[in-house]
Each structure stands twice: as C-alpha cells, then as structure tokens.
C-alpha cells in the first residue's frame, strides 16, 4: 500500500475484499514446515486434508489436476505455527529451522 493522498479511495474506504493478501506474513516464521509427499494421504488418494482444514493462515494449497493430487505451501503467508505438523496423522510434515 503506497498510494499517494489523491489515489486513496474516498473516505479511506477499503474497496477490495481480502486485500490482506498484499501483506506478507511469512517473515514471522522461525520454523518452516516441509512436506513429505511419500506418505501423505492427500497425494496418495485425495483424502484427509486435515492440515488444510486446520491451517489458520490458509497457507496450504491442495490442488487436484487431471486426477493427480498436488500439495503446496505458500511460504509468503505461513507463520510457522506447526499446527499442520502436530495434527498430520501420517507424520508427513516436518519442521526445519529457517
């Protein structure tokens, strides 16, 4: 957000919903979660998804493309809280120091 005074919307209104994505919270992280695809149930058969449900920062992307399942961390927003690491039923996530 680096608009000049005459570019700011009238009354300082926020016009774009969800524009918090412009603010990157990834720098808060001291530990980084790393995904291990070999044992992950989402990669295997597209079930589970517990990490995605519990992630408070919406930093996990579960992608389904042409019958294949992909998993991706959005390190721009992940704050490294470790909820996904603690809750993963197959221990497919490990935490590494930044």
């Amino acid at each position: 957000m680096s608009e000049k005074f005459d570019e700011i919307p009238m009354a300082g209104n926020i016009i774009k919903p969800g524009n918090a994505t412009e603010y990157k919270t990834g720098g808060w992280r001291s530990e980084r979660p790393v995904h291990i695809p070999e044992t992950c149930l989402w990669i295997k058969n597209g079930t589970c998804g517990i990490c995605w449900i519990y992630c408070p920062d919406m930093a996990i992307k579960l992608i389904e493309k042409d019958g294949k399942y992909e998993f991706e961390y959005d390190y721009d927003y992940c704050k490294g809280c470790g909820i996904c690491y603690n809750e993963c039923p197959t221990d497919s996530i490990k935490m590494e120091k930044e």
């Binding site: 994505t21 919270t25 808060w28 992280r29 519990y54 920062d57 959005d74 927003y77 809280c81």
Partner: peptide, 17 residues
C-alpha cells in the same frame, strides 16, 4: 474461503480456523 491469508492473527491462533 471467507477469510484470506495475510491477516495478522498470532501464529497458532485457532480463531481463523
């Protein structure tokens, strides 16, 4: 989703969930 990433709740807070 009704809440986007980039909010500034503390790491590990359950409220966004």
């Amino acid at each position: 989703e009704i809440l986007s990433s980039g909010h500034r709740m503390c790491a590990g807070c359950a409220a966004p969930t």
